[in-house]
């Protein structure tokens, strides 16, 4: 059986400072193939469409089932996870680019350190006394749990930030993912104890007030997290916090 070929145009970059360039690859088109399986094909035969032998394209991926958040890239101009990007559903030829709002490491790999640093800034954790056995956790309604659960599915993939018109390579904007974490932990009975710290952390430059409500974040979030609700809720919480700061500090 002869297989139809699929053309992939890939934006490559050898080192962080280097100039980017495009290369075209042909891979066999198989049913249910996704972008990762195409990139794996390139590894098996790293030759461009015009017959030039090149280094295989590098990319990040791990779980291949959209729970780890590794394989975010810009596919046909739109940011998404490469593992769930089935080639049958994509316009051809397919273009692959690294995310533009994070520093490129190499080819399709970018450095998302900033997102993880932001988690530290907003203390995105529950301050437990220790991991020793001190009995049950706090009682919580299943409705509150469900609300927290959808938010806690955030896999720090960066889609919401790449698509955000306020988030740029060099500004300080924290972005939807971080605001969502603030809401997630402020909703937990124990996490709530550090609520003020978290709110004050998002009330500075690059904080919640910088959000322009373009709401692209919620459209591109692969986990369907209600990010705009989180943003508005943090808007409310910070508004009260600001009033409190003005009158009680």
């Amino acid at each position: 059986m002869t297989e139809k070929n699929l053309t992939l145009k890939i934006k490559r970059q050898d080192t962080p400072g280097a100039a980017a360039y495009w290369q075209t690859f042909e891979v066999p088109h198989r049913p249910f193939a996704n972008i990762i399986s195409c990139l794996m094909e390139i590894q098996k035969s790293p030759t461009t469409g015009d017959g030039k032998k090149v280094c295989p394209v590098t990319w990040d991926s791990n779980c291949l089932e959209e729970v780890c958040g590794s394989c975010t890239m810009v596919i046909n101009g739109r940011v998404r996870q490469a593992c769930t990007a089935l080639v049958d559903n994509l316009e051809k030829p397919i273009t692959l680019e690294p995310m533009s709002k994070f520093p490129v490491i190499r080819d399709l790999q970018v450095n998302r350190e900033r997102m993880f640093e932001n988690l530290k800034k907003v203390k995105a954790w529950v301050d437990i006394d220790g991991s020793h056995d001190i009995g049950e956790g706090p009682i919580m309604t299943d409705q509150d749990r469900a609300k927290r659960y959808v938010m806690s599915e955030c896999m720090t993939c960066g889609c919401c930030l790449e698509a955000c018109p306020q988030f740029t390579l060099d500004n300080a904007f924290l972005g939807a993912a971080t605001f969502n974490q603030v809401r997630l932990f402020n909703l937990h009975p124990t996490g709530e104890m550090k609520k003020e710290d978290r709110l004050n952390a998002v009330m500075g430059e690059g904080g919640i007030a910088d959000c322009g409500n373009a709401q692209v974040c919620v459209e591109v979030c692969p986990k369907n997290i209600p990010l705009t609700e989180s943003i508005a809720d943090i808007g409310r919480q910070t508004t009260w916090q600001a009033i409190k700061n003005i009158f009680t500090k």
Binding site: A163, D210, A214, Q215, E219
Partner: peptide, 25 residues
């Protein structure tokens, strides 16, 4: 100041709210 910090991308992400974001500026 706000306009200066916006990098509109409505040509890539064609959503009504994103269009309104750009139009607002």
């Amino acid at each position: 100041y706000v306009i200066h910090h916006a990098k509109t991308n409505v040509h890539r992400y064609r959503y009504p709210r994103n269009g309104l974001y750009t139009l607002q500026r």
